[in-house]
Amino acid sequence: MDKGTPSSALPTCAISLNINGTNRVLDIHPWVTLLDLLRGPMELTGTKKGCDHGQCGACTVLIDGERVNACLKLAVSIDGAEITTIEGLGTPQDMHPMQKAFVEHDAFQCGYCTAGQICSAVGLVAEGRAHSRAEIRELMSGNLCRCGAYTNIADAIEHVLDQEGVTPLREAAE
């Protein structure tokens, strides 16, 4: 069994999670958030902490395929779930199409919000509800980017949507 958090006198709970395809059985304190679990004991630091309060989207991961803010999720409450983080989408050598599109369109500057943006964008594509530029913007508004890469992020996502061909982009309804 993996050690979830440093030992102490306080009670722990056993949970199992599938993280990026690997099953993990963990013994954790109930107050540990999914974000702190990933970044700490799981050493998956690709997922970022930008606020720790659901206000920025930097911590976005996919839980059972849906994009969610990891910072407000107690890990105990998602026992049995499948988690995909940025590390699970692709590697520098073998990038996910969304990751490639982000590089190509310079959809980041400092790169700190980027993991959250990409996980969110992958969730958005899977949801299949973004059919226009305006919809991309609105449905990506849960991911703040202080570097202001928004227009490039929208370009990258549009590119992937076009490529996938599943949801042809209609003219922006502006």
Binding site: V68, E127, M140, G142
Partner: peptide
């Protein structure tokens, strides 16, 4: 309200 991520949860 909120954001897509928050609404999912």
């Amino acid at each position: 309200g909120a954001s897509p991520q928050l609404r999912n949860a």
